[in-house]
Design a protein around this nucleic acid. Structure first.
Lengths: 187, 187, 187, 187
DNA sequence: TATGAATGAGTGTTCATTCAT
DNA sequence: TATGAATGAACACTCATTCAT
């Protein structure tokens, strides 16, 4: 039941937004009553926090795998990170959209916590860029912080438009992005 | 007074979000009463729509200037477009954040309208990429639609982190982005 | 202008009801502003009271004419009274409907006053019935008060259905009513 | 509780009118909160609709009983119908007054529905008159539609003045009305 | 004679949450 | 484990009315 509430909520939050989805909407969808919701979740926000935590946990685990993989050079790591972000947005489109859109409905404390996690993603990317510069793989005249933010922006923004049924798969988009990031678009 | 309500609203919407900002909050800030708000605006949503229209209008006007400027080659146009987007996010940070975050609170009809405008920005960028490919300025082996989305993502995402008081100005960020986009980060 | 406000109000009150018609609605219809309304009328209720007073005044004047006409016997007076009531509902349908429906929106004092006037109509009818009984024109075994209320009910109720464009004119309805009242419907 | 809200509402609607009775007024009367009202009723109007439906249902059931009673001739049926209408106005005075006065506060759809039901009462009466004319019980030179409207008017109007504590009972009024309707008031 | 800005009390309605059962 | 009745605070919005100009 807890799982069912969790999944139904995500689906509804994506469709109508967190604010516009009432507990009543959620339990109506499941044919139970509001009491049931509060048996499993302390509050509406705690449910939202759960969704965020799960999403971040998954991302951080995958990032961790990539970063500690010593068989990859930094070029390959950037590729894997970009692909990982896009893949998660594709395979978990609903969760991803809820994550990116509804973060602001967390209270201050929870928000800080999630922002901290999100920052780990950013610093992970930044560190790879920095390492690549050190190793001579990447140009040293481009600020690694800004470059990382640019790459993350390109990836994260795709939650707005990425369509799994569309012409391009997550892998193809990742390939194009990496090609552009590594070699530029100029002839 | 209309202008004062408009500006106060944007400030509050940014701080707390559209849903979490009540008309009461807005008018309290100004020391007037709710009636006054409704004297100037038909509804809370119409105010939000006004904010969106203004923001898009400004962007589209500036984009138009760039696109029709025949002294610029496509490389220069991409630069100007990137700079324009970042500059607007810097100089109108508050408006920009409200724009990107609260779009979903428009009703269906208004949302479609604004999405149409937003699409003009996207096709503007795409067209420049395509033209650049035709002119031999840009590589022909990278899909222009995806490239455009990548560039816009990198730019737009900056509303999340861009800080006018920070180390880098909009112009510097634009320069780094363009350098990366045109030449890549690889050595 | 006062007259224009007066007439527009009646039209709107009939369409949407007194409560559901705002001063704004009224002045919008005339292309003026609310201040103008309050220049001519002290309050929304005072306007309603004016409408009621006018309607009653007209009715009472006409009733007076009939009652003091010595060339008519009581039978003829009943006919004239019935015809007068129906005619007013026909020719002033809008006013009539506002009168009958919105009386309750007057405050206590005004309501009492109007009810007093309305009672004069009732006692006028009752007195004619009583006189007719005395003169031997009408049966003495029917309570004149109840009979008067029955006749008034039949007439007044017609504001609910009377349609000037319909099959029957006010005069024809009056003739049928009087025939029924005087002779009954039984063979 | 639902029943209590229902009854309290009717009482208040009668006293002050539908528009002038707020949900707050209703729940104050019961010492509960507005939430409770909305737990049982979807809206203020739905409650009004319930009141109307109940009233009409009761009337139509009773009418049905009379019409299908084959032991009654048409004369007797008219009597029973008149008595039924007056009896309901007497015994359910409050409901009746709310019914007659507040019908206009229903929305278009609901209003049409209720008007349809009300029309069944009218056509019921009309049909009896027509049948009576066919059977030779009633005069054939009086239009049955108009006659029916006259009778209904006399009856329905009584919601304005009928007082159960008054000199005359519903039965006595019905007897006088029927006598007048059948035989007329002329000597 | 008319405007237009502003008020303030009120409206119907929503909803996260609680709690006895 | 789940219900269902109830709360109470909040919300967007309306409107008759006032008043300086």
């Amino acid at each position: 039941m807890k799982q069912k509430i969790y999944e139904t909520s995500i689906a509804l939050f994506e469709k109508a937004g967190f604010s516009n989805t009432s507990i009543q909407d959620i339990v109506n969808c499941l044919g139970v009553t509001k009491g049931t919701f509060y048996y499993y979740f302390q509050s509406k926000e705690q449910l939202l926090m759960n969704i965020h935590l799960d999403y971040m946990e998954r991302l951080l685990t995958q990032q961790h795998e990539i970063l500690r993989n010593e068989t990859l050079d930094n070029r390959a790591k950037v590729y894997e990170l970009v692909y990982m972000l896009l893949r998660n947005i594709e395979t978990q489109g609903t969760n991803a959209r809820v994550f990116f859109r509804e973060m602001r409905h967390l209270n201050k404390e929870n928000l800080e916590f999630i922002k901290g996690k999100r920052d780990q993603i950013r610093t992970g990317m930044t560190d790879v860029i920095k390492a690549g510069i050190k190793e001579g793989e990447f140009r040293k005249d481009l600020n690694p912080e800004i470059v990382a933010l640019g790459i993350l922006g390109a990836c994260n923004w795709s939650y707005n438009w990425f369509n799994p049924e569309g012409e391009f798969s997550d892998q193809e988009v990742a390939r194009i992005y990496i090609d552009m990031i590594l070699h530029g678009i100029e002839t």
